[in-house]
Design a protein around this nucleic acid. Sequence first.
DNA 1: GGCAAACGTAACATCTTCGTAACATAAAGG
DNA 2: CCTTTATGTTACGAAGATGTTACGTTTGCC
Lengths: 226, 226
Amino acid sequence: MSDNLILVVEDDPDILQLLTYNIRSAGYEVITATEGNSALAIVRQYLPRLVLLDLMIPGISGFDVCKELKRGSETRKIPVIMLTAKGDEVDRVVGLELGADDYVVKPFSPRELILRIAAVLRRSSPEEVDKPWVREGLSVDFQAHRAEVDGAEIALTATEFKLLTELLRNSGKVQTRDQLLNKVWTYQFEGYARTVDTHIRRLRQKLGPYADWIKTIRGVGYKFQG
Amino acid sequence: MSDNLILVVEDDPDILQLLTYNIRSAGYEVITATEGNSALAIVRQYLPRLVLLDLMIPGISGFDVCKELKRGSETRKIPVIMLTAKGDEVDRVVGLELGADDYVVKPFSPRELILRIAAVLRRSSPEEVDKPWVREGLSVDFQAHRAEVDGAEIALTATEFKLLTELLRNSGKVQTRDQLLNKVWTYQFEGYARTVDTHIRRLRQKLGPYADWIKTIRGVGYKFQG
DNA sequence: GGCAAACGTAACATCTTCGTAACATAAAGG
DNA sequence: CCTTTATGTTACGAAGATGTTACGTTTGCC
């Protein structure tokens, strides 16, 4: 579960692209759906931080998607921002009563949208997801992008930090090199799996006494085990 | 100071009555003003819990009232909901940037309005005022728009000050260039992320001995770490 | 023990990213 | 109006990060 992930549900390809671009630019990760059923499936699988939901989508309507989300115990607390065609008051009110946290009226300005997203996230998050990870002498502060070993900051590169984050987030679970490549190297990376080894090594080196908290599972991949 | 008091600023008597009636029905106390100057005076005297502010009012405009409220140390934290004639995007955005906490577009439904008032009140917490930021020889007075290095004022441009403010406000947290662009610059750029670098550099230059409090997180962005 | 596959390590070339300066243009101020 | 200041853009070099290759080492299995 990425703590920075936003699901955008919108069937118009142009608007979808516009939304995706702007939200990404604001520093969030984006996944998309173009109709109701897959939207629900994706929410349940990825548990995004927020759902931006167009009302008029094929299949299950935006209303019903929202209603459904607010019924599930896992998905209830995920904030929803409704995207409505222009000024249909009834829709707005019903939306808010359904449990949507806000709405944005088309046509919207990107900046306004980002402000609203930020506002909703601000008031919905107990900031628990981004808490620094600490065990013994190893601490990782994700917000500050900072890691410490026995009180001293260690200089991790962007990739190393991402890799460590990914390992920590799936602490205890083995991840194959391919999985790590997909998550840490977001772009389509035609690279060699051995690249992961190299970065694991560099990471271990910098972790010093805690190097062996990154376990090698021979024939499978790596896992973090504090 | 009643903790349930809402000031409604609106010059149209019909709308004013509609607003007053509905907000009272929702359990709040209401005082009213019909133009900007008296609105300011009333706010300062009664310190209401929230201000519902029409944009088009005689005398001082809603914008200026809002701006003025956000300048005073006593009134800064009072949330403002803007009431705009029609969905003029620019108005909305500027309103939000002025420090308004939300806006409602006329014609509005009473239920929607009440929901928004409740939402804004819910999230408006007793946060601390924008006190000057001071550490060692560096001090930044947001209200005075003034910064000092070792006792001497440094001349920051508007952009530099905004940038510094944004960094300070998220002190310790990394922010990507895109995030900074969205927050500091009010419009969207088309891949000119290097602009941020330039301004960071100018800022650092003026910060003198404290230049390195602005940390570069290579591959990610910048953060302030005093 | 012998073997092969899997993994660790080191070194290197290449590519990114960032800082810097210089320039061009827009805005502000007199 | 002209001058000054602020702002955005571009170019380039240095420092750093990254991916790859080659080779050494370990592991599991017979």
